[in-house]
Design a protein around this nucleic acid. Structure first.
Lengths: 358, 358
DNA sequence: CCTGTCACTCGGGCCCCGGGAGTGCCAGCC
DNA sequence: GGCTGGCACTCCCGGGGCCCGAGTGACAGG
């Protein structure tokens, strides 16, 4: 206990040798999942040093907070700080295995014309399937949403189907209930009028203008216009009803396979957190504002349940603007090089898939 | 071991008293989760019998395969056969708590105009939330699918949006890629022609006729017709692309809270089965053909992973025709009365929600 | 047929013990 | 000064023995 307390400030430079040892140790731990002993390091590090020397180095690393020993006579495992240094400085990226994401590539081509929701589900499930951990992807969120086309179709039973084409690609269907049945021809008038007036304009401003329009036509005799504007209003009001949980989590149950979650209580706590979605969403939001690929190791994310778990995230963009975040959640003891590659490539592919739609 | 082997045939009638004891025991076990002792039964059964007598009764019940003792000096717990008798004959249904499904009622009203997929997701998540177990709902599957309306809209970039309204309520969007861009007016011709020809007809027959139509127009000079029929063909071909996993499972992670799944290996096996979806789907299919509410206790379902788990299912109908199944998966030690009520009511409400759309 | 009683069985908690793994430290060597 | 071999020490882990409590099975008597 004393050793941890009088830590040498962690910003002190580590010798190259110490870094090499740390890197080897983390790699070994990731492979084997067992605390790494001085003997193993001596054998495997390639430094040609004896176990005794390794012990000295390890002692120093522990003193500086990079390692800890689960108990006296186990080997050592990395602390969060140890992983941190590892990913920041010591990680050797293998060239991305270009072959494997092909699977995603194909899937994205299949989904090329799908709604964002479906796209996001595909990608999330790819991330989880490929890494055998949990995948998470937020729905793309654009500030400018341009109405491309609006159309009304009669469904009968005083219901009208409203079709909105937004941003050239997203198609939304709404059903609104009206005071009476409308003829196809009547609705065609509405369709034409609204398209002429609003197509190509921003959804936010349309909502404002509709309000004004409504007041104007009220004074008018043109009852028909009144009704159709109200219809459009309804359709757009519905737009407000956001999905409460704007991200898709997949493969959570993969996590049950990991040693570090063989404690059922921990598993429960984690799944409960996932269920609430709020915390995870906040974390993702944070990653969206930070730029580039982010790695939160263990409690760095700020949540106790993330103990021994890490999350690797990357924002994805459309038209050069960040519209969402995706990532992978797994044990801190994960193969960061692979996961980083996958997350990185995936975010790019998703971005590309979104762009190719224009 | 000997006692289990020379079992008295289970079809032998149980005395009323034995049944009462069995019922009390199952109820107690469901409440407490602990093996039930003769003393407890003596206190709680209301029969005014001593523990010693209970022991004799329990001995008989064990001999007939309704109970088993985890070990000599624990109490007894029900076997699958015990649960079976309990649910078939001894279960006292409380009048359905009419208040609680109100939550679902409201949700369904909100979703009244939603796509089947969303409806099913709502219901599945209700089942899991309300029971705190796992909920599962298959997508409604209708044999007759009538095309109500079809429409083409130009999206630009040689893409055309096809909107299909099916069965009065389901709206499907497809994007198809064409050889060139089409004017709105050209597509309007297509829209009119196809609606006139095919609206109100069965999707299956339309597909056949389109094929014929295509061959006919080929010989014709009318190139335009050719193209649009091909378009429609594409749209319907897409229809074939079924969701590979036509059911929605929600709240699997709730199961981690149960004692009987505190064995991590079991949990893994179960989640792996869920991931594959096939087995579960087969099980649900089976329940659809059987009529009314079904209960599979433990391995009755035919799957080893369902050991200590039960599934309560009920088909749901639209226009008097069974179109899907929903259910709840949880430990065999579940409050069957509540779960049965919920599953039953939910299937009715879902059916009603589907019907009210016509 | 029911009941009180008593011997018996079994699981769980506890301690103790020994073996094995890995360390910390030290003396000696280069 | 840094590296190494050696050695004592610490700790985990598994097994065995012990006791206790819970619950049963069986039996004899009402």
């Amino acid at each position: 206990m004393s050793r941890q307390q009088n830590q040498v400030p962690p910003d002190q430079q580590l010798s190259e040798r110490a870094e090499h040892v740390l890197r080897t140790l983390v790699e070994q731990y990731i492979i084997g999942g067992q605390p790494v002993s001085s003997r193993t390091l001596s054998r495997v590090s390639g430094l040609g040093l004896s176990a005794a020397t390794m012990r000295n180095v390890m002692y120093d690393l522990e003193e500086q907070g990079y390692l800890r020993a689960p108990h006296t006579s186990a080997g050592r495992i990395p602390t969060e700080q140890g992983y941190r240094l590892f990913v920041d400085k010591l990680l050797q990226m293998h060239p991305v295995d270009q072959l494997t994401p092909q699977e995603l590539q194909q899937q994205l081509e299949l989904d090329a014309d799908a709604e964002p929701k479906n796209l996001v589900e595909s990608v999330s499930s790819f991330l989880s399937g490929f890494t055998r951990m949990a995948g998470v992807v937020t729905l793309p969120r654009r500030d400018v949403t341009v109405l491309r086309y609006i159309e009304f179709l009669p469904l009968g039973d005083r219901r009208v189907l409203v079709i909105l084409v937004i941003n050239d690609h997203e198609v939304q269907n709404r059903v609104i209930h009206t005071d009476r049945d409308y003829e196809h021809s009547e609705l065609e008038v509405a369709t034409n009028y609204l398209n002429q007036k609003f197509a190509g304009r921003n959804l936010g401003t349309i909502r404002r203008d509709l309000q004004r329009e409504l007041e104007a036509t009220r004074k008018d005799v043109h009852r028909m216009m009144d009704v159709l504007v109200e219809m459009a209003g309804k359709a757009f009001a519905d737009e407000e009803r956001e999905p409460e949980t704007p991200f898709v989590l997949a493969g959570e149950t993969n996590l049950v396979h990991f040693e570090e979650l063989s404690d059922v209580d921990k598993l429960r706590a984690l799944f409960d957190t996932f269920r609430q979605k709020r915390d995870l969403y906040d974390l993702l939001e944070r990653s969206a504002t930070a730029d580039g690929l982010q790695i939160y190791i263990g409690r760095e994310s700020g949540y106790e349940v993330m103990d021994d778990l890490s999350i690797v995230t990357s924002p994805y963009s459309q038209d050069g603007e960040v519209v969402g975040v995706l990532g992978v959640i797994g044990p801190s003891r994960m193969a960061y090089d692979r996961v980083i590659s996958v997350v990185d490539v995936t975010s790019r592919l998703l971005g590309a898939a979104l762009n190719s739609r224009n």
